[in-house]
Simulated assay, not measured.
Amino acid sequence: MLDTGRSQSQSWSDDAGIGLIEIIISMFLLALLATAFLPILVQGLTTSVRTTTIATASQLAGQQLDKLRELGTTCSEVSVFDDVAPATTTDERGTVYQPHRQVAACPLTYPGVVSVRVWVTRTGVAQPLAEATTLFYVKTAAP
């Protein structure tokens, strides 16, 4: 067996207490890092929720325009689209969306176009989350 010149009890006493100090310092540094990154994490989560809400509202606005396309190409059919109030939709997070529609007056000559505006709001909030305006082609006044 090799003799290193030190006894085992002497090598233990040289390192005594270092582990506890290193743990305390590393916990302090970890707390500093967590405090620095916490605002970034919160902002990222907030942005994610906002983006999901806007994407859902955009999808609902597109669905409203799809329903308009299914009705037909006469002005009376497009006017019915404006008369029926769209139903609210609730997503998996509990956000309630309210679609709105606005159809302009029928043209004086046919064929022509009718301006249609669709927007989606959150219940209790007047500002639109998503909005679409389009010109819809109509062939005649009535079927």
Rank of each mutant, 00 (worst) to 15 (best):
E131C: 09
L29S: 05
C75M: 11
R93Q: 08
C106F: 07
I23K: 14
V138K: 00
T133C: 05
Y110S: 00
F136K: 07
E92S: 11
V114A: 08
A34P: 00
T134G: 02
L45M: 11
T134H: 12
G94I: 08
R6G: 03
L30E: 09
D83M: 08
S48C: 09
T51H: 15
P128N: 02
G44L: 04
A104G: 08
G72I: 00
L33K: 13
T74K: 03
S11Y: 14
G124L: 12
A126S: 06
V116P: 02
D3Y: 07
T133R: 03
C106T: 03
Q8I: 14
T4G: 14
A55C: 10
R122F: 00
L68H: 04
S13N: 13
A105W: 07
Q63Y: 08
V84C: 03
V118P: 04
D15C: 15
V49H: 04
S58C: 08
G5K: 05
S9K: 11
F28D: 05
S115W: 04
V120G: 06
T109A: 14
T123N: 06
V80D: 05
G19H: 12
D15S: 14
V103D: 06
L38G: 11
D14K: 08
P39V: 00
D14Y: 09
A55H: 13
D3W: 02
L41Q: 01
D66L: 10
I25E: 08
R101M: 05
V84Y: 00
Q64I: 08
K139F: 09
I40P: 12
Y137G: 07
P128L: 01
I24L: 11
T46C: 03
Q102G: 08
T95K: 02
T133F: 03
T89V: 10
L135G: 10
I24Y: 02
R50Y: 09
